[in-house]
Design a protein around this nucleic acid. Structure first.
Lengths: 101, 101
DNA sequence: CGGAATCCAAGAAGATACTG
DNA sequence: CAGTATCTTCTTGGATTCCG
């Protein structure tokens, strides 16, 4: 990114529909588009590819293409993406605490 | 919240336009709607009140009304909200690191 | 299979006017 | 000053189709 603005990570990445679900599946080893599409409820191929492009743009995931037939593509978390996921977990914990209280 | 879903915090709170800006101003002591509206560039009264309602709903901020004339209202971070802001800071740090790398 | 293009429906946001 | 209601505009997401 040219202008690393924290607002953008939230508005254009984490805040978009399906994003947290997609990321968690990637984290769990669901790395191919077709699998992600089936794994995340309601998610369509078009929206998924938009999300993945956005995640690559923000350096949250990295794309790997293999010159095979049929073509295979995999997405993996970057170190930044991995930290981001930890933070999502942290928010989830905070939320549960706050709810219990 | 009845159903504390971490997706919702991102999609309906942090991921919305102006949200991070609004929260940071509240954190910095800009607690009244009128002041927030002037402080956050491009933000209108209508959108601001939507955001504030959402933040109250998610227990990120608390609303305090004073029976004065003219009426005065203040919004303050809850403990959960304060932790959330710390996390925003953390993401910002990570982002800068990732950019430097 | 992965992904881009198109078209349409749904939701978010901007502008304005109005009430307590 | 704070907040709601209405209307319009723009952006996002959903369904389908086509290409490499």
């Amino acid at each position: 990114m040219a202008d690393p603005d924290v607002n953008e990570v939230f508005e254009k990445c984490l805040g978009c529909r399906y994003m947290v679900g997609i990321l968690r599946h990637i984290q769990a080893g669901v790395n191919r588009p077709g699998q992600l599409e089936r794994a995340v409820d309601g998610l369509t191929a078009k929206v998924l590819s938009e999300r993945l492009r956005r995640l690559v743009e923000f350096r949250v995931v990295e794309k790997q293409s293999y010159a095979e037939t049929p073509p295979r593509v995999e997405y993996h978390l970057t170190p930044f993406g991995a930290r981001l996921l930890e933070i999502v977990e942290e928010v989830e914990r905070l939320q549960k605490e706050a709810t219990r209280a």
